[in-house]
């Protein structure tokens, strides 16, 4: 801070240039006014110090750190929200982004859980009278019927991802995490279909998992594109 605070810039010439000096600190000084101010500054140490101090203050202010609120604040907000007697209504739609991660995780987890439960149940069914070769061909045909409709689209979108503007970390992390969960669920569904190609629920789960993956991939590609 100023070495010459006790000799403030207050002479008549300093006063004439006060507005220009303030504008210079704001970076809004008209270039036509810069010359006269520079001349004054060259001969006035007090104004030079004033300029340096005001710029320092502005710079410090711009780099102030955010202040952490007390931890209890959220609990108080939550308590007051709980006391609100309002239906959730359209709020839910607009909070889609915030709840998306949890929703996708829950959906994928539910999908995986269902398959984990259902899969072994299929395996516990009475053995099919099909021969091993026939069962294998039936499984391959079932998988081809389900996966074939999505495979090309997924490959096409996967090739586009990574070529656009990088997605900000929070969104990317949510999408990547959910993609991994959906992939796990797809793998489980696939195993269940291979075990019993006739199992309608397993085929539906696989179909739903692939559709979900395609949606996630398209979302990622769209976000990269919009980032530009």
């Amino acid at each position: 801070m100023s070495r010459n605070y006790h000799a403030p810039a207050s002479g008549p010439a300093c006063e004439r240039h006060a507005d220009a000096l303030a504008a210079l600190v704001d970076d809004t000084l008209d270039p036509r006014d810069r010359g006269p101010l520079d001349e004054h500054l060259a001969g006035c140490a007090a104004c030079r110090d004033l300029l340096a101090d005001l710029r320092e203050i502005r710079s410090l202010a711009a780099t102030l750190e955010p202040i952490e609120p007390p931890a209890r604040a959220w609990h108080d907000v939550r308590r007051r929200i709980a006391a609100e007697d309002q239906p959730l209504g359209p709020r839910v739609e607009w909070l889609g982004w915030w709840s998306f991660g949890r929703a996708a995780v829950a959906a994928a987890a539910a999908m995986a859980a269902a398959i984990l439960v259902i899969g072994p149940a299929y395996l516990a069914l009475p053995p099919s009278s099909d021969t091993p070769d026939h069962a294998s061909r039936a499984a391959a045909a079932a998988l081809e019927a389900i996966e074939g409709s999505h495979a090309a689209a997924i490959r096409e979108v996967e090739q586009r991802i990574g070529t656009g503007v990088p997605i900000p970390a929070p969104a990317r992390d949510v999408l990547t995490r959910n993609l991994a969960l959906v992939d796990d669920a797809i793998a489980e569904s696939r195993s269940a279909v291979e075990a019993d190609p006739r199992a309608a629920i397993a085929r539906e789960r696989l179909q739903a998992g692939l559709a979900r993956k395609l949606t996630l991939l398209r979302t990622m590609a769209a976000l990269e594109l919009e980032g530009g």
């Binding site: 839910v92 949890r102 829950a106």
Partner: peptide
């Protein structure tokens, strides 16, 4: 843009979303 892109995937867990 993120909100727009992901809004259709909204869930009903309003409170955790608000948190």
């Amino acid at each position: 843009q993120v909100v727009h892109a992901l809004a259709p995937a909204a869930a009903s867990d309003d409170e955790s979303a608000f948190e």
